Simulated scan of single mutants.
Amino acid sequence: MTITFSDEQNQIEVTDKISAAIRAALEAAQAELGVPACLNLLFTDNEGIRELNREFRNIDRATDVLSFPAYELPALLTECFDEIEAEYVEGELFLGDIAISMERAQAQAAEYGHSLIREAAFLALHGTLHLMGYDHMTSGEEAVMTKKQEALLQSVNIGREMDGI
């Protein structure tokens, strides 16, 4: 998976370990897609994500992750490739954009008792699943999405064993 990383915050260092964990998690998600894919990932702070949330969702508060899908898709994206006019970038399906508040990620990692690496990978994967059509508006959708997130994180060894890194 091609991930275009942008870092527009300067409070929390996005280390090579964080980038590698994110890449591993998103490549696992791409394997489920069955096609080469790409996306843009922005690291920002609470104020930056608050501005995005206000501008695009009319919600004037910070959040941890925002996804901006390129398409309105049902889960299991591969079932509808023929029904959408997909955008490809150098042969890869463009999924959309994700923004992560690293400030919020760091606070949540501390709150949940695990590493910033795990939290950043979890948030990036969560955003990617949204780009792939998954959602959590109902308890059923949330159960499916949560199970998928945890399975993908575990498949690339980004789980509780990373705590303390």
Rank of each mutant, 00 (worst) to 15 (best):
I3E: 06
T4M: 10
F5C: 12
D7M: 02
Q9W: 05
Q11K: 12
Q11A: 09
S19E: 15
S19Q: 15
A20I: 09
I22Y: 06
A24V: 02
E27W: 02
A28E: 13
A29G: 11
A29K: 07
Q30A: 11
P36M: 04
P36A: 12
L41D: 07
L42W: 04
T44V: 01
T44N: 02
E51T: 10
E51V: 12
E51G: 00
N53T: 05
R57P: 00
R57D: 09
I59S: 04
D60M: 05
D64P: 01
D64E: 07
D64R: 03
S67R: 01
S67A: 15
S67N: 02
F68H: 01
Y71W: 01
E72Q: 13
L73W: 03
L73D: 04
P74T: 13
L76P: 00
L77D: 02
I84T: 06
I84K: 14
A86T: 08
E87A: 12
E92G: 00
E92T: 11
L93T: 06
L95T: 08
D97Y: 11
I100R: 00
E103S: 04
Q106T: 03
Q108S: 10
A109C: 05
A110F: 08
E111Q: 13
Y112L: 15
Y112Q: 12
G113H: 06
S115Q: 10
A121T: 06
A124R: 02
L125I: 06
G127S: 02
T128E: 13
L129C: 08
L129V: 06
H130Q: 11
H130T: 05
H130A: 06
L131T: 03
Y134M: 10
D135I: 01
D135R: 15
D135K: 15
V144H: 08
V144K: 09
K148V: 03
Q149M: 15
Q149R: 14
L153S: 03
L153H: 04
S155P: 09
G159P: 07
E161Q: 11
E161D: 13
D163G: 12
D163A: 15
